[in-house]
Design a protein around this nucleic acid. Structure first.
Length: 365
DNA sequence: TATCCGTGGGC
DNA sequence: TGCCCAAGGAT
């Protein structure tokens, strides 16, 4: 076996990575992002908080317009704390993982009420707030308050797994990766270092086809020395994604209004607006009509809405009924016109459904 | 520890 | 097209 492909030999031959080298790279190549203060400027903890919550499992490109809209509408944590939850959910609609929006609001209220409107700087105190886990606590502590902390996200994990050729599969390797992260921290500039790791992972040490030739840490990287950096991080096998089926009921009033309701406050799409439907079951439901929200002549549309959630795929058949103007909304339901659709919190799957409710108009894009 | 929890883009 | 991936947290 050639020495370059022998992990033990490769690791033994390399010098440890120098955090100062990464910081120097960051000074030249850092990305300009909407939530990132100019070099040398102090970060607003609220902006760091808002961006970090939005960026959980969500790409920079997707987050950017939502971040700008939230910051414009609620410029401070106290403004956000005063907002009704329904408005926050409506503004969050389309971004996904809606528990984040509920916790964002709960956290803003906690900061306003328990901390006088000032985010705590301490990682442990941050961790006690709703929606703030180990990653986000470390991110706010380091980026907003320059505390010594390692916000180990997917970028950090990938970079660390390659630097040290960690062959244990994720997520089991997390404790080991975190320990390696702590050994790598510089003596200062903790916020810059955190963001440098993220930038490196996002632009150089990418999941596929990493640009090792441009990497400031190419010489100490064990995975590169082995010759196949994309082999890391190793991941556990994924579970299959099942399918569920249901029927959605489009009750359309003569003026174009559509009957909707709000989902239960927690769980899947918790607190969001929806078109009434049967439960979503692996084999659909036996008698969909029994779940119709009102008595009417229901007609099956020749349309199926498909949508993929994180842990199942959904197929929704559409039934439609034309309802007279002035028909009352059943308990727990309400009529929504095109005029006030923007105030509703329709998740993406429901925008797809509503696109079939002519002449009610909504753009599923 | 494992599962639940969205969405859109890239290949 | 199907799969992978993205600045995770709560339970």
């Amino acid at each position: 076996m050639p020495a370059a492909t022998n992990p033990a030999v490769a690791k033994a031959a390399l010098a440890p990575p120098d955090p100062g080298v990464l910081l120097a790279w960051y000074d030249r190549h850092q990305r300009r992002l909407p939530w990132r203060a100019p070099p040398g400027a102090r970060q607003d903890p609220y902006r760091v908080f808002l961006s970090e919550i939005m960026l959980q499992q969500t790409t920079v490109v997707t987050v950017a317009p939502y971040y700008e809209a939230f910051l414009r509408r609620w410029p401070s944590v106290e403004a956000l704390a005063r907002a009704p939850l329904a408005e926050v959910l409506s503004a969050w609609a389309g971004l996904g993982y809606y528990a984040r929006a509920r916790n964002l609001h709960a956290c803003a209220k906690a900061v306003a009420e328990r901390h006088g409107g000032q985010f705590p700087a301490d990682e442990t105190a941050l961790l006690a707030l709703p929606g703030i886990g180990p990653y986000t606590a470390a991110a706010i502590a380091s980026i907003a308050f320059e505390r010594r902390a390692a916000p180990v996200d997917g970028n950090w994990e990938r970079v660390l797994a390659r630097l040290f050729a960690v062959s244990d599969p994720l997520p089991k390797a997390r404790p080991k990766l975190r320990a390696l992260a702590l050994t790598l921290l510089p003596q200062a500039r903790y916020g810059d270092f955190a963001q440098a790791m993220m930038d490196l992972g996002a632009t150089i040490c990418t999941p596929r086809k990493p640009a090792c030739v441009l990497c400031p840490w190419q010489s100490p990287c064990s995975a590169r020395a082995e010759g196949a950096p994309e082999r890391y991080p190793v991941k556990a096998a994924k579970v299959a994604r099942p399918t569920r089926q249901g029927v959605a009921f489009l009750a359309v009033r003569a003026d174009g209004a559509v009957l909707v309701r709000s989902r239960a406050p927690k769980g899947l799409l918790g607190g969001m607006s929806e078109v009434p439907s049967t439960p979503w079951e692996p084999n659909g439901v036996a008698h969909p009509g029994a779940h119709a929200p009102l008595q009417a002549t229901w007609t099956a549309l020749n349309a199926t809405v498909t949508h993929v959630f994180s842990h199942f795929a959904l197929e929704l058949q559409l039934w439609r009924a034309d309802v007279p103007a002035g028909a009352p909304a059943p308990d727990g339901h309400r009529w929504v016109t095109a005029h006030d659709v923007d105030a509703e919190a329709f998740p993406s799957v429901m925008r797809k459904v509503l696109a079939h409710a002519q002449p009610f108009f909504i753009d599923p894009e």
